[in-house]
Write a protein that binds this DNA or RNA. Structure first.
Lengths: 211, 211
DNA sequence: CTAACGTTTGTCCAATCGGTCAAAAATTTG
DNA sequence: CAAATTTTTGACCGATTGGACAAACGTTAG
């Protein structure tokens, strides 16, 4: 019997092996991109033969698709948590902090996503224009409410969200460059705390000198 | 005769054809990544046969390498222009504006660079840790001078540069996502002006309400 | 014209790719 | 135990890949 992506009934071995494959595929896809990765690479990283891997996922695309589906859920969780209750500036600050923590703790997921978008999002375009746009529009409305109430400065909520995504994910997607530029002294583990401090100041106060 | 990458003597035809190939390769590489692109694709985009293309560039890597070398020069030009003369806030604002204009006018170059970094910068790592780090350190020192003089708020100059890179290049690298989220109404040509307005406000004043 | 040189192409090749298949091995079930 | 089922593997396939090569073609200088 072969295991389709929509077959819900799975044995213990199937669950374990599928997890093993997805973990290996995340590693391989995120560093080589979809077309740059081979089934052999993933199979080797998962410690099994290629036909064995293809017994659990019939096609290379199925692995990638499963990975992307899981990714989007966890990836958008921080934005979903952005809520109307609580102080607006505090809410935004903790959203930025959470996104930065995700860049630190799940850089492979970030790179996998970046790879997909960079190449025109051929496989998740409907999700972007659908689920993602809906969520962002909804949160933009919340932010707009804060602006109208005078709780935060008036600007464009959509571009505000973009800038938070860009600045935080930068530390995952461009990690190699960040570490190279910071050098051996400052490029160590402390770089995320430095980034958190900087981003907090940037988003709250900007660059104008006080007074 | 075959044309090596370090052969300085070139006929008129060689110059023209090499330009044609590089232009085609920029298009193909930036949308498919290095491994995702084939010599055939580039040759077809350049309007010539594969062996003909290989007459001008012996290997696929040579095309990519030439492209990356040229890229870095033009890509870092805006940062090189950041100068100590003139008002600091004005200097930074025009740096942001120039970078955003590059994201708008040269998105393929931005994506080519992003692709390379995403995959660990295997081909330009020495440049990052060398030339790039030197330049950034130098400009960070200039910015630090402004901070000491009280001209701009005190923060981390390196992370400031990172955040400018991240926010501006986002509009080239994640363009598909930006347009999908903004939708057909706001995702048109005006999005770069909206971004410019937002980024100026963000970097100057932050999000705290005035008063 | 002709010889030399630069350019283009058709053909070919070995390696790698995603994926199939039947049969062996391991596991579960009765 | 034995039968049924699930898992694993080696061998194989057609398509695509980067690249080699010699022959044909075009151009130019003497």
């Amino acid at each position: 019997m072969t295991i389709g992506t929509d077959a819900p009934r799975r044995t213990r071995i199937q669950q374990e092996k599928r997890e093993l494959i997805l973990e290996a595929a995340l590693e391989v896809f995120s560093t080589n991109g979809f077309r740059g990765s081979t089934i052999d690479q993933i199979a080797e990283a998962a410690g099994m033969s290629k036909p064995n891997l293809l017994y659990y996922f019939r096609r290379k695309e199925d692995i990638h698709e499963t990975l992307m589906q899981r990714l989007l859920d966890t990836w958008l969780a921080p934005l979903r948590e952005l809520d109307d209750i609580g102080d607006p500036l505090t809410e935004l600050r903790s959203y930025i902090r959470r996104k930065l923590e995700m860049a630190r703790d799940f850089p492979r997921e970030s790179r996998l996503f970046a790879n997909e978008i960079l190449q025109g999002a051929p496989r998740i375009m409907p999700l972007l224009a659908g689920e993602l746009k809906t969520l962002v529009d909804e949160k933009a409305a919340v932010i707009k409410g804060w602006m109208r109430a005078g709780k935060i400065a008036k600007t464009d909520p959509w571009h505000l969200i973009f800038s938070i995504w860009a600045t935080t994910q930068h530390y995952a997607d461009f990690d190699v460059q960040v570490r190279a530029v910071l050098g051996p002294n400052r490029g160590g583990d402390g770089r995320f705390e430095d980034a958190a401090r900087f981003l907090e100041q940037l988003f709250l106060d900007g660059l104008k000198p006080k007074g």
